[in-house]
Write a protein that binds this DNA or RNA. Structure first.
Lengths: 231, 231
DNA sequence: GAGTGGTCTAGACCACGGT
DNA sequence: CCGTGGTCTAGACCACTCG
């Protein structure tokens, strides 16, 4: 019963996870409160609190004042993807990276970029290559209203993505993943038949209430986004 | 300089974010250390620590002992998806839910399910419906070695997913997202032409070193996974 | 109302990692 | 070496929410 002094929050977290995995504390079970656990483990309540709070953030535990701490009925699967710079994504994989600007003009934004809200925007199409092969096609719209300074950027050697990250602060964004048949022009660039199923990541970035940019990334067929689930 | 007493970690976090977004602390900038900030804000160091640690977890700050705390050069985009029970995903959207078992037999696992490692496994195919329309096709393999108790489950009214979550503990999993052309049998179920681009989520779940189950979810064409990015 | 988690404090010691 | 973040403690008060 009395543990041999667990006094780091990580060791407490580990022990709590062990009990959950071993079904000593099955799903739905209300576990002892912080004071009791701190007595059992021989540590301060704050240490137990740190451990349990971290587990609550990952969805393993559910905590409510007065009601106590319960083992989540459904260990909510929470998947986190890191979205790296494409250049890093490629060079981290040990491949050579190349960026090519395809077009740069101004036009009314595509429907999917309508969040930019203006009648005209800077439109930049480019490709990112890994070991000489096209890896992803970038189709980007930049608001000329909120980012007039983008008008004077060539985007010939530095991708819009990198320029934006380095120079434009943003507060939040929307992102979504979908499967799509590659449109003709994209398919040509990706060296695949038209309508090939490709993974598309669409992102809109904001600074407070101002939409800055909307981008679509068309990945080469077969591309996978991988991640881990921890319970 | 002296703030009007910021003494909750959330208010400190907010102020730090404000300075970052306002470029008072630009990317790469080393911010004052915890002791200095606690003096400026008029609070305990632990409170500052709590705020900065949370920001470091989200990738906004980078912290190293002795080196101090820097504003991340590239505010790492970290996207988190919650993977709900399909039933909840549908009923939360205000639609009626229906589950249908299509087949249940034993066979050698498909290639993508080879993590199960055995020569034979329980194979369950089913569909989940929203408002009478097929929403997702579930193609699942369950290890008969590690989960012999699954053999006696009919999975006729309760989906394998829900049975597993309710009864089988797991420690971790691999997950990946890809675009795929719908195979003939899947396309028929989804009421779409063969080879239609569909989003596929593939998941393998483990209990310590034992692979429990591998599942593929084929989403109806046009399905999107949506999330937010916070900077 | 009362029990539980949420948070703050002031102080202390430790561990890492630049210099 | 020694500055910085990482963590623990003991105690306190507060805020939520269940009954």
């Amino acid at each position: 019963m009395s543990q041999p002094q667990l006094n780091t929050w990580q060791s407490i977290q580990k022990e709590v996870l062990r009990r959950i995995h071993a079904r000593e504390w099955p799903p739905g079970h209300t576990i002892p409160n912080e004071v009791e656990l701190s007595k059992e483990f021989g540590c301060a309540r704050a240490t137990v609190n740190r451990a349990l709070q971290a587990l609550a953030e990952t969805g393993v535990l559910e905590r409510r004042r007065k009601a106590g701490t319960r083992v989540a009925l459904r260990p909510v699967s929470r998947v986190t993807f890191e979205i790296p710079l494409i250049r890093e994504e490629i060079s981290n994989a040990g491949q050579s990276y190349e960026y090519r600007l395809l077009s740069r003009d101004q036009a009314p934004p595509a429907n999917w970029a309508s969040a930019l809200g203006s009648t005209i925007a800077l439109h930049i199409q480019s490709t990112h290559h890994a070991d000489g092969q096209v890896y992803v096609v970038e189709d980007r719209w930049i608001s000329t209203q909120t980012l007039p300074q983008a008008m004077s950027e060539p985007f010939e050697t530095q991708s819009a993505n990198e320029w934006l990250l380095a120079n434009i602060p943003y507060t939040h964004g929307d992102i979504n993943f979908a499967a799509m048949g590659a449109p003709d022009t994209i398919a040509e660039l990706l060296n695949c038949p038209a309508d090939s199923p490709v993974l598309v990541i669409e992102r809109v970035t904001w600074d407070h209430d101002n939409a800055l940019t909307a981008v679509r990334l068309y990945y080469t067929p077969g591309h996978r986004l991988e991640s881990q689930i921890g319970a």
